[in-house]
Computed example of a mutant assay.
Amino acid sequence: MQMNIAEAKAKLSELVAAAERGEEVLIARGGKPVVRLLSANATSPAFRIGIAEGAVSSIPDFLEPMSEEEISLWN
């Protein structure tokens, strides 16, 4: 469901009810969607940090100065 701001002001309670039911509610300005109204109880997709844990054996220290050999490879 998409509605322009002026209409959304007048129908805010209806839009909130629709979002609570799980409907996607977009509020537009000049016909372009600018805001998505979501229920506070909506479940968001799980985001897991460390999904590739153990896949990388070591991470280089990019702040450590380069060795003379590494510098010569760049030249």
Results as ranks from 00 to 15, higher is better:
residue 38 L to K: 15
residue 28 A to T: 11
residue 21 R to Q: 13
residue 11 K to R: 15
residue 56 V to E: 05
residue 17 A to P: 03
residue 11 K to A: 11
residue 68 E to N: 05
residue 46 A to F: 03
residue 14 E to C: 00
residue 16 V to G: 06
residue 74 W to P: 00
residue 42 A to W: 02
residue 58 S to P: 01
residue 58 S to T: 12
residue 1 M to Q: 06
residue 5 I to H: 07
residue 1 M to K: 09
residue 7 E to L: 05
residue 55 A to L: 12
residue 48 R to G: 03
residue 30 G to S: 05
residue 65 P to Y: 01
residue 75 N to F: 12
residue 51 I to V: 14
residue 25 V to E: 03
residue 11 K to C: 02
residue 3 M to K: 14
residue 63 L to K: 14
residue 7 E to K: 09
residue 40 A to Q: 08
residue 34 V to D: 09
residue 26 L to S: 06
residue 33 P to M: 01
residue 3 M to I: 15
residue 39 S to D: 08
residue 30 G to Q: 05
residue 36 R to H: 08
residue 1 M to R: 08
residue 48 R to W: 03
residue 14 E to P: 02
residue 31 G to K: 03
residue 35 V to F: 10
residue 54 G to F: 03
residue 12 L to D: 03
residue 8 A to T: 00
residue 65 P to D: 07
residue 8 A to E: 00
residue 3 M to P: 00
residue 1 M to S: 09
residue 27 I to G: 00
residue 52 A to G: 04
residue 54 G to I: 01
residue 11 K to Q: 14
residue 10 A to G: 13
residue 46 A to D: 12
residue 17 A to W: 01
residue 53 E to Y: 02
residue 43 T to M: 11
residue 25 V to T: 03
residue 66 M to P: 00
residue 52 A to F: 15
residue 17 A to R: 12
residue 70 E to H: 07
residue 12 L to T: 11
residue 25 V to S: 01
residue 35 V to E: 02
residue 14 E to W: 03
residue 4 N to Q: 14
residue 69 E to M: 01
residue 38 L to W: 08
residue 66 M to H: 09
residue 5 I to W: 10
residue 64 E to N: 07
residue 42 A to V: 07
residue 75 N to K: 14
residue 29 R to A: 13
residue 57 S to H: 13
residue 58 S to A: 14
residue 70 E to A: 15
residue 59 I to H: 08
residue 6 A to G: 09
residue 45 P to I: 07
residue 41 N to T: 12
residue 16 V to F: 13
residue 53 E to P: 00
residue 64 E to V: 05
residue 26 L to I: 01
residue 39 S to C: 03
residue 20 E to P: 03
residue 55 A to V: 06
residue 1 M to C: 04
residue 39 S to A: 11
residue 40 A to M: 07
residue 9 K to P: 00
residue 20 E to F: 05
residue 9 K to H: 10
residue 37 L to Q: 04
residue 47 F to Y: 14
residue 67 S to C: 05
residue 57 S to Q: 14
residue 16 V to S: 10
residue 65 P to H: 07
residue 31 G to M: 02
residue 20 E to D: 15
residue 15 L to Q: 04
residue 37 L to M: 13
